[in-house]
Design a protein around this nucleic acid. Structure first.
Lengths: 256, 256
DNA sequence: CCTCCGTTTTTCATTGTGCGAAACAGTGTT
DNA sequence: AACACTGTTTCGCACAATGAAAAACGGAGG
């Protein structure tokens, strides 16, 4: 049964639209969301009254401070993030490369925790940004362990090319996902960011389900030979410990 | 005229309630928000469908990743934060003490940007947390420059005591606010955190309205003598530069 | 300064959506 | 096994939300 309250649903989509098109006005947002102008106006009015959106002098709208504060609360409330933070810091202190905690959010990945390398190497992932499921170390680990419907949807959908090495062939990708599930870790090579490699492994919770991935993303010449092995071992030890901290008892759930 | 959509309004209050009472269930949230159980259930259902809230195995609700991601977008969209970040970093690099950017949000303050001192001294403010308007350096600067109705509401409302030195007398506070407006800066002494002082000054935007405060919060023995003067000058220079960057043309708006 | 055009705000009658109340189905507690 | 408690489901009614269209506003250009 569907208990969705349509006006609330629209309001949430409005926030989403606003996060993608900041600085737009009533008409533009109405078109974007498919709401009528009256609906749009009233939704924005309601959101503004509580500070979730802000109206500029030129009547363009942006997300407001309330949205930001709520987001910060959400971050604090996440048991996953709280549990992962020290582990992510540990890895970072040892190798001083980009360390990411990634979750799947619908058909995208989101980086929910990031310790960035000080050289500020440009990497695709950014704090709180979403990315694809089919490219990158963490993303492919999440995809390999996602419910079958999600995997199928991605494999049959468009596989956007990010670099020369992005895997855009469904069959190759399908085989790789199988390998990732078997190996329990994955090394991705410049398929999302040029000249970058990622070592990633899955984090499981008490139910055995994969809830996140930890990934170390570094220049290609760093993740090689002995350092690659060390990094892989470090990541594997860490996901193991973190999973246990989340209540995992060694009974993985495997999809597809 | 009031164009509020009541169901959307309730949904937003639900998110707010959830940020205050994470891990509660339908009944508890219904009581907290004053919504009926059906309303509460349906609102949570709608919020969950889009990932704004998450239902745990024990049917308790928490804010979800979508809320977090939206909050991160909101932070990126804020021209104030974007403009302030380098300035806050500058101050931090020079003095290595807590540097805060504070805004007023209704009857509270919120810390929207924070460079914390590495000694991890416990201070009241935390990233994305709200605080009172009548105690603390940044907060009092915001209160002094808030619309009269807000000032009156705070002065006639309860002035919570945080430390021995918190100013709880309305008349003393009123006089101090007047002084803060005249001086254009403020030194608060252990009225929110024991053994801590704050030097704070207001940031204005193109309209001349005070939109934020920059505050340096440090141990009492740091903010003394010559160092106090230096810090005050540094903060004053910085708010001046930031205000100009925001379009301020030297025409302050003064309330009360 | 005035005019025009696009956008936002307001109004109002109609209708379909969201609502309350109460029954039902789980969960775990005594 | 019975209970107490929370969460889920149903249903008809009322009024909140809606669409359409008019009014007000504001900025651009002459």
């Amino acid at each position: 049964m569907d208990y969705t309250i349509s006006s609330v649903d629209r309001a949430l989509r409005m926030l989403q639209a606003l996060s993608e098109l900041p600085g737009s006005g009533v008409t533009e947002l109405a078109e974007r969301t498919g709401c009528t102008k009256s609906q749009t106006f009233r939704i924005l009015y309601t959101l503004e009254a509580q500070g979730y959106v802000t109206k500029d002098a030129d009547r363009s709208y942006r997300l407001g401070f309330q949205t930001m504060l709520l987001g910060d609360q959400a971050r604090r409330q996440s048991p996953l993030i709280a549990a992962a933070e020290p582990h992510i810091n540990d890895i970072y202190e040892r190798i001083r490369q980009n360390v990411l905690l990634i979750v799947r959010h619908g058909m995208r990945t989101a980086c929910v925790l990031l310790r960035a390398s000080p050289d500020r190497d440009q990497i695709y992932a950014e704090f709180g940004r979403t990315g694809p499921l089919h490219a990158g170390g963490g993303p492919k680990v999440m995809l390999a362990n996602a419910p079958c419907e999600i995997q199928e949807a991605v494999l049959t959908g468009e596989l956007t090319r990010y670099t020369r090495k992005t895997i855009c062939d469904p069959d190759t990708l399908r085989a790789l996902l199988e390998k990732i599930r078997t190996d329990g870790w994955h090394l991705s090579e410049a398929d999302l960011d040029d000249d970058k490699r990622s070592v990633a492994a899955p984090v499981r919770d008490a139910s055995g389900e994969v809830v996140a991935a930890i990934s170390v993303t570094a220049p290609e010449d760093y993740l090689q030979g002995a350092r690659l092995d060390e990094t892989r071992d470090l990541v594997l030890q860490t996901v193991e410990r973190l999973s246990v901290a989340l209540g995992y008892r060694g009974t993985p759930v495997v999809h597809a």
